[in-house]
Simulated assay, not measured.
Amino acid sequence: MNDHFKDRVVIVTGAGTGIGAASAVRFAEVGAHVLAVGRRVGPLRETADRHPRIEVFVADVCAEGAPQAIVGKALDQWGRVDVLVNNAGVFAGMDLEQATSEGIDRIWATNVTAPSLLSAAALPHLREQRGAIINLSSTFGHRPLAHASHYAASKAAIEHLTRSWALELAPDGVRVNAIAPGPTESEALASGGLTPEQVAEIKAAEAARIPLGRRGEPEELAEWITRMADPRSAWMTGQVLTVDGGLELT
Rank of each mutant, 00 (worst) to 15 (best):
H4A: 09
H4W: 08
R8V: 01
V9G: 08
G14A: 07
G14T: 05
G14E: 11
F27H: 06
E29M: 01
A32V: 05
L35N: 00
V41N: 07
G42R: 08
R45D: 11
R50L: 10
R50S: 12
R53Y: 01
P67G: 01
P67K: 02
P67V: 00
G72I: 10
L75E: 05
R80P: 05
A88F: 09
F91K: 01
G93A: 13
D95T: 03
L96A: 08
Q98W: 01
E102F: 00
G103C: 03
T110K: 03
N111D: 09
T113H: 09
A114H: 10
A122H: 10
R127A: 04
G131T: 11
I133K: 05
L136W: 07
L136E: 14
T139K: 08
S149H: 01
A153R: 13
K155T: 07
L161E: 06
T162H: 12
T162N: 15
S164R: 15
L167R: 15
A170D: 14
V174I: 08
R175V: 14
N177Y: 09
A178N: 06
I179D: 11
T184E: 04
E185I: 12
S191P: 00
S191G: 06
L194G: 02
A200H: 04
A204K: 12
A204Y: 05
I210V: 14
P211I: 10
R215Y: 00
E219W: 05
M228V: 09
A229D: 10
A234W: 15
G238V: 11
G238F: 08
Q239S: 13
V240C: 06
T242C: 08
E248S: 12
